[in-house]
């Protein structure tokens, strides 16, 4: 049976190192259809929350209204910021009828209506919660038993709600890593530490300090790679190593790890797009 979800790729999906290619390949392998929400727009994220009262809700609401119109009841996200933005908007609009009315007044200009009858999900969480680990194991072709993976969740997944997992010590991705036959680094305490997000552009010095800690914790505890679930997390932790010759910690997406385990080809993984090179001796 094919599992089908409405899909919100967000703006940074296409440019992310091999995220799109590996996600698509993994979906083919497992029989999942991520059906792109037609004409989705940018969710606005921190930038709009920080500058606009009403538009910060209108942006995520438009994409959610489109999803409803196109018959989806669940939206799969692959970016922590999109996930948290859509969830936040959904929760607030549900609590605040007056705000919802205003948002809908704006959406009516395009003939759209937001009701909020939707569930916002992260694709990684979908894989863990909607799929049987044994089902996933059946697709594993490469032995990753000696491969140690530091699960980097980033800060925004599941915050502030804390309903899909613990807010400080999440373990969802650890379970996925185990199902793939690899070793999750269980004492990776930097797993939810913030990478600095867009501050990397304006305040790179202070962000490099944060990222150094995220990388160092993985190095010192013996990880072979850091595994991420958000384009911006991946980008910052990867790019922050540039210019530091003493570290070389590859930062991959969970979908690339799945592809490695499933024995998928080079073009499905696109590991050559990473900034810190990935090599595996298996």
């Amino acid at each position: 049976m094919i599992m089908r979800y409405g899909f919100f790729p967000g703006c940074s999906y296409k440019g992310a190192a091999g995220y799109k290619e590996s996600t698509e390949a993994v979906c083919r392998e497992l029989g999942i259809e991520l059906a792109e929400i037609k004409d989705w727009n940018c969710c606005g994220a921190t930038s709009y929350w920080s500058t606009q009262d009403l538009k910060s809700y209108v942006l995520p609401a438009r994409t959610m209204a489109l999803a409803e119109k196109q018959g989806f009841t669940e939206i799969a996200n692959i970016c922590n910021a999109c996930y948290s933005t859509l969830r936040k908007a959904l929760t607030r609009l549900d609590e605040d009828g007056e705000l919802k009315e205003k948002v809908n007044l704006a959406l009516h200009e395009e003939g759209l209506e937001f009701t909020g009858n939707l569930k916002i999900r992260h694709f990684m969480e979908i894989l863990v919660n909607d799929f049987d680990a044994d089902e996933i194991k059946k697709h594993v072709k490469t032995d990753l038993a000696e491969f140690v993976v530091a699960p980097y969740y980033g800060c925004q997944l599941n915050r502030p709600w804390g309903d899909i997992d613990d807010t400080i010590n999440p373990v969802l991705m650890d379970r996925l890593i185990k199902a793939l036959g690899a070793k999750p680094l269980t004492n990776y305490s930097a797993k939810t530490e913030c990478c600095g997000a867009a501050h990397m552009v304006a305040h790179s010095d202070s962000c490099v300090v944060l990222n150094r800690r995220i990388v160092k914790d993985a190095v010192e505890k013996g990880a072979d790679t850091i595994c991420t679930l958000c384009p911006l997390c991946q980008f910052n932790v990867d790019a922050s190593q540039a210019g530091n010759k003493s570290v070389n910690m590859p930062v991959i997406f969970f979908t690339q790890l799945m592809g490695l385990a499933f024995g998928l080809g080079k073009n499905d993984l696109m590991l050559n797009k990473l900034l810190t090179p990935f090599k595996m001796a298996v």
Partner: peptide, 8 residues
């Protein structure tokens, strides 16, 4: 940076 570390 909206990391919500304080909020949680």
């Amino acid at each position: 940076v909206s990391c919500y570390n304080c909020v949680v």
